[in-house]
Design a protein around this nucleic acid. Structure first.
Lengths: 336, 336
DNA sequence: CACAGTGCGCAAATCGATTTGGCCGGTACT
DNA sequence: AGTACCGGCCAAATCGATTTGCGCACTGTG
């Protein structure tokens, strides 16, 4: 452990360059013109000394932390890691710090997490957690922290929204199954009050309706967006009076759980029962048989969130909230 | 978008409580005694006003940011997300902010990432990237930023190290394969200069040696810690003069790639060839056949790193660097 | 009664940047 | 020639907390 060398401050730079601290600040921020000669001089001095402005001092004065927070329901869900990577793509080159928190742990529920990041005075929040209540959103809004929500229903007073076209995606899945001749199509979904669940349900029922069929409530199950949740839901469907010949999962993790359950029952996939997922996480192509699913452009979603947040922080778009809907893509593999 | 309400400062709190800002600060920090009555008064006022100290102001004065950074080679590797979750477990309750960066993107290589987090004056860094050079480490050390390295070889002047017992883990895997009667055991490993690669190689060769056999260099391959890398390495081994009857992968992702390659060749697992992984990520239990692997206590590793960093920041242990080695556990499934 | 000791609170300096008002010399315009 | 303007720089105020030296009032002791 070597000893810490004291980092130079703006005053040292100014002294070494023979100018005032004001001038140094101006060449850094470009808020006022500086002659080319002076600018060059200051810049070389900065480089020589390895000067980096102290973010605390800057933040104190500007009332900005140049950091944004990502709040996800579950960090181990690969979909969200990809979103995080996409955010990082954009944020790092803008010098922003990205902090990532999941609200999946006991004692680390959403209100706590929100308090935590608000206490740190982040400039913006990307909120991907369905369980968010109006109170959660309100507590963010009243601090003036910019907010972009992921995959939620748009509300003008709740900030921007970035989401994929879940309704359309699920519609495509069901269409595909119908085209393949499956007739009793069940749905094992995630949390009932989660927005993605609702939108995927909507796509499912709409596709059935447009095909002149109607959804059988016995074949619709809500649980959690997890492998265990999928297995539990599938068992219930398999045990019903008229078991399904196809099950669409609310996401890929659920679909994997459905596969577990199908195997327990000795059902062959896709002969006895077809199974589909949603998101197209890495694991979707790993399982056997490979999972038919809908590709969700997670990384692009992350990038889009970052750009919207940066635009907002730059004062663009004034106060009109926006909604961006990204395209999906059906990926047909072996499970259907 | 509601309008921002101005957050109260310490001065408002002091005024409302009828005391000086000093006193408020003292009840917050406990650095000097405050009478019980005053303390109670101040605390209720703080709660009423919803006061939160401004981290920039505090950081400016204390020269601490109360934030730490995690740098991983690849955020989409589930092992690292679990480490991140473990860090978060410990850090959040201490009020620290965790920022997570991967160094996997073009234009986002390790030196850049290190510069980025150092510019943000984080208090500590958890570095999980093998590719770290001495220069990278030195640039961290000279800023006085505390460092904990993950899975690297211990060096007293490079800060603390937390790692799993990779040598022992791989030893167990090979022992297990030998016990099952496999005789030509190949190794498809990750990056040659990565520490985990080296330690896993060591466990592999040592186990063979102790069994009175010697490692055949034709059966050892270095590539990348990824699915594609695993497939490529396995193809080479399968094409060699005396192909292996078992392949141990440097990690689970590699093992999955090896499976891909085995399937291409029409080899049955584990009859024609046994395959093992390392880390025990979620996907290891998803693939068919389920993967024999070594459970790596990722979350616990993350927690341990966080505790060590916090201890260091609290000034414990002075300057003596420590190494913590965590236990592993062989998980036998269907692929061997 | 005087004096040392102690618990508690205040005023002011400080951290390192940004930002604003103003000064100075030179150019353009009338 | 006089006035107005402007580019380029500086000095000083400011952001919101922490920290230090000091003073006040009260207690216990010789």
């Amino acid at each position: 452990m070597r000893e810490a060398k004291k980092q130079p401050g703006i005053a040292e730079v100014a002294a070494a360059a023979g100018v005032s601290v004001t001038t140094v600040s101006h060449v850094l921020s470009g808020r006022r013109p500086v002659s080319a000669a002076t600018r060059a001089l200051v810049e070389t001095v900065i480089k020589e000394l390895g000067y980096r402005p102290n973010p605390s001092a800057r933040g104190l004065r500007t009332q900005r932390s140049e950091s944004i927070a990502l709040i996800v329901p579950d960090l181990t869900n690969p979909f969200y890691t990809l979103v995080a990577a996409g955010l990082q793509d954009v944020l790092m080159e803008s010098g922003y710090l990205l902090s990532i928190t999941d609200a999946a742990q006991p004692g680390r529920a959403l209100p706590e997490v929100v308090r935590h990041v608000l206490a740190r005075r982040v400039d913006g929040i990307v909120l991907a957690s369905y369980g968010a209540t109006d109170d959660d959103i309100a507590s963010i809004a009243e601090t003036g922290t910019k907010l972009v929500r992921l995959g939620s229903r748009f509300r003008a007073d709740f900030g921007d929204v970035v989401r994929a076209d879940d309704v359309g995606g699920m519609h495509d899945v069901v269409d595909h199954l119908l085209a393949r001749g499956y007739r009793r199509i069940g749905l094992v979904n995630g949390e009932y009050d989660a927005q993605p669940s609702q939108m995927r349900l909507e796509g499912y029922t709409r596709a059935l309706r447009e095909a002149g069929r109607t959804a059988d409530p016995d074949l619709i199950h809500f649980g959690t967006f997890s492998r265990a949740g999928g297995a539990a839901g599938a068992r219930r469907l398999f045990d019903s009076a008229h078991p399904p010949d196809a099950i669409v999962g609310g996401n890929d993790l659920i679909a994997v759980g459905v596969m577990d359950a199908a195997r327990e029952r000795g059902l062959a996939i896709p002969r006895d029962v077809a199974i589909t997922g949603y998101d197209d996480i890495e694991a979707a192509s790993l399982v056997t048989p490979a999972l038919t699913t809908v590709h969700n452009p997670a990384r692009e979603i992350g990038r889009t969130c970052a750009r919207m947040l940066l635009d907002r922080l730059a004062g663009k778009y004034d106060d009109v909230a926006r909604e961006v809907v990204l395209a999906h893509r059906l990926v047909i593999r072996e499970s259907s």
